[in-house]
Simulated assay, not measured.
Amino acid sequence: MPATPMPSRALAVQKVLTAHCEAPVAVGDWQQLEPWAVARFHLEGAGVPGTGIAKWVRPAAGRTARCGPWRLPTECAALRFLGEDLGTRLAPRVIACDLAAGLLVLEDLAPRVALDGLLVRDGAAAHAKRLTAFARALGRLGAATAGRADAYYTRRAALGPVDREADAAGPIASSLAEGVRQAVALGIPPGGRASTELA
C-alpha cells in the first residue's frame, strides 16, 4: 500500500523547522485539529521536541476572531513576551515563526483535555480544582503583565505594524459600535449604566 502523501502545510512546517534548526527535521503523523487551522505532528531531528503544534491563518477578510493577517504576529509576540521577556511558564513556547510562510510552530502541551469540554461534559462542581487552577493562572498572567504594555508592543511592532489602540479595543469593538448604532436606530440609545457596562 503506497504511503499517504504529506500535506503541503506539513511540508511547509518541515521546511520552516529545518531552516530554524539549521539541520534536517522530519515532520510526520500530521493530524489537523478540525475545525481550527491547527495541527499536531511528530518530529524527528536533532534538538527538536518529539511533537509540535502548527498554526496558520485561513484566508478571510477583516479582523475576525480566527482570521486576519494580524493573528500570527500577535500570537507570536504574546507568547514570546510571556515566555522570554517575563519568564512565565503559563503558555506554550514558540519553536519557530515564519510570518512570510504564515506559520507558527509551538511546543505541544498535550496530553491535555480542554477545560471547557470537561465543564460541558461533567459540570463545574466536578472540576472545582481545575477551575481554581485556571483562576490562579489567569491571576498570575494578570500580575505578570500589569504595566508591561509598552514592552509587549515593542516586541509586537518588531513583527510588523500594529495599531495599538485598535489592538487594545479588540475584535469586538466594531460589534459594539454596530450594537449602539442599532439601538439608536430603534429609538433606545444606551446611556448611563448601560454605556458603562458596554464599555
Rank of each mutant, 00 (worst) to 15 (best):
L79H: 09
V94M: 01
A96D: 01
E107Q: 04
A96I: 00
R93P: 14
A114K: 12
L86R: 07
V105Q: 05
G102E: 01
A101C: 03
A78P: 13
L104G: 02
P92Q: 07
L99I: 00
E107I: 00
G102S: 04
C97T: 05
L103W: 11
P111Q: 04
C76K: 13
L115K: 02
L103R: 13
D98P: 06
D98R: 07
V94G: 01
C76P: 08
V94C: 00
V94H: 03
R93K: 12
L99H: 02
V113C: 15
A100V: 13
I95E: 11
G87P: 05
V105I: 05
P111R: 05
A101L: 01
A91W: 08
V113G: 09
A77M: 03
L82C: 11
R89L: 08
P111A: 06
D85Q: 15
P92I: 03
L104S: 04
P111I: 08
L90D: 08
E107P: 00
A114M: 14
G87S: 02
A96N: 02
R112E: 15
R112P: 09
P92D: 11
L106N: 06
L115R: 02
L106G: 07
A101I: 00
T88E: 02
R112I: 12
R112W: 10
E107H: 00
L82M: 13
L90A: 06
L86A: 07
V105T: 00
P92Y: 12
I95N: 13
L82G: 13
D85G: 11
R89Q: 09
A96H: 04
L104I: 02
A114H: 14
D98K: 09
L99M: 01
V113F: 15
E107M: 00
D85T: 12
R112V: 14
G87N: 10
L79W: 05
A110S: 12
G87C: 02
L106K: 06
E107F: 00
L115N: 03
A114V: 15
L115E: 01
A77N: 01
V113R: 15
P111E: 07
R93E: 14
G87L: 03
D85H: 13
L109Y: 05
A78G: 12
D85E: 14
A110K: 06
L86H: 12
L99G: 01
C97P: 08
E84R: 07
A100H: 15
D98I: 00
A100C: 15
E84F: 04
A77F: 09
V113Y: 10
V113K: 14
D108S: 03
G102D: 01
L82P: 13
G87V: 02
L86C: 13
